[in-house]
Structures are given as C-alpha cells and as structure tokens.
Amino acid sequence: MSQALSQAKISKIFSFSCIALFATVVTGAVTLPTNATKGEGFGLLSHSGTPSATGTSNGYYYSWWTDGAAQATYTNSAGGQYTLSWSGNNGNLVGGKGWNPGTNGRVINYSGTYQPNGNSYLSIYGWTCNPLIEYYIVESYGLYNPLSAALKRGLVTCDGANYDILMTTHTNQLLINSTQTFQQYWSVRNPKKNPRGLISGSVNTGCHFAAWQNLGMSLGSSHNYQIVATEGYQSSGTATITVS
C-alpha cells in the first residue's frame, strides 16, 4: 500500500469491553498474537523487537502491536511517555499511551519528537462499541495523506486548526468468530504539523466528535481505548511522545 495505511487495514490489538476478548482486525483475516500480554510494561523478547502487548504503565493505558516484519522497539517510560523506533521499511505497527476507556470530551495534550521516513501517522486513536467505530484525529503524518483514499465529508476548526473530516468503511471483516462491517472516522489536520522533529499540541476530542455527529457520523455508545498513537507501514522512523 503506498495507500495502504487507509485502504488496507493496519492490524491492531484492541481489548473490547463489548466482546471481552483481544482481537486483531485485518482486511479479510484475523490473527491472535501468541506473544500478547497484559501488565506493567514488558521486555524485549523477539528478533523483530518488542512483542505485541497491552496493559498499564505509570498510570496510563498502553497499546502496542506489530506484525513482526519490521525491526521495532516500543518502550514505556515515566508518566505518559513512550518511545518507538522502527526500521526495515517493512510491516505494520502501531503503539501509544492514553486511557481505557476513552471519553467523549477529553482534552489530550502531547509533546515530543516525531520523525517518520515513509508512511506513518501521529494521531489520537481509539475505538467505540455499539456500534463498532475506529477513529483517528491525525495531527501529523509522513508521506501518505489519508485524504487520497477516503470519502471527504466536511471540515471542522478545532483548537485553532483546520481539519478535513473523512469516513471509510470496512465491509465484512472477521472479528474473532463473527464477520462485521465497521466504519473509520477521521479528522486530518490541514496542513499537518511538521513531522521532522519537535512536535506538540492539544486536541479537544469533544470538538471533533461533535462535528462528526453533526454530519451523521455517530460514535458508539461506549468507548474502548483512546491513545496518542504512532503508526507506521513499510517505513522507518522514531518517536518519543509524552501524553497528558
């Protein structure tokens, strides 16, 4: 995918309160990583780097998933900080820190460094249940702009910045033992923040959620996790992000 960050679904672990299981969503398939764990951090255990895991670290929820194709190292640091480095221009990966469950109106602050080489996002990322919705508030990205492969629904100004509102639909995706159709909602900052070094911002999620609702894009009745995520596909890069 040069367009794959949106056209082909990047796999991620999500711990559903609505189905009480770990699942990995992929286009046309599902896999359950054998090395997924929960707890207060984890070690570096595999040739491809840090194994997939979710849990809590220093008072924050974290989610980290990799398909193992890239050399990727994810590290939980003090407070809301995490560090991710990846290389090899191969594979899918995403990780970050935040909260579980998310909320409808949280103001999320982030700061640090973000230096992608290729396809990547830095975003507020989360899921809701009933219905199942995956959402992104994209603050910055590498080479790939999701505008190129999604249905544009409108515009919104939040926190003094302009965002394009997009929607994509994933049809008949296998989740655990059932097939479901779910939608992705997007707010993509335009122009994006500089992805080549120091980066910081504040995102009022309620502003985006209200704009989506006004366009008929309703979130689910309950939230799953809500994190500041760094995501990469067949690329390389580094990120050290502190969330609060």
Rank of each mutant, 00 (worst) to 15 (best):
Y144H: 13
Y233I: 05
I133S: 01
G43Q: 10
G41V: 04
I137N: 05
P146V: 03
A36E: 08
N130Y: 14
N190M: 11
T37H: 03
G49C: 02
N119R: 09
Q71E: 08
E134V: 09
A29F: 10
A78D: 14
T24G: 10
Y141Q: 00
S123I: 06
N92Y: 12
E134P: 08
W64F: 13
K9C: 14
D67V: 03
A36H: 07
G118W: 01
L215R: 03
C129I: 01
D164W: 06
Q173N: 15
I108C: 05
Y121S: 01
H47L: 15
V107M: 02
G68C: 09
N145D: 14
I199K: 02
N100T: 08
Y135C: 10
S57L: 05
M1T: 10
T66K: 01
A72T: 10
I124E: 07
G95R: 02
S87Q: 10
F182W: 13
N104Q: 00
A70G: 04
Q115L: 12
E231T: 09
I133C: 01
T34H: 02
P51T: 09
G79I: 05
F22I: 03
Q213F: 10
T179H: 08
L215T: 04
D159Y: 09
V30R: 13
A69I: 01
L21Q: 14
L151P: 01
S236Q: 11
S148Y: 14
S187A: 15
A149M: 12
Y61A: 09
A239C: 02
T103K: 03
S2Y: 13
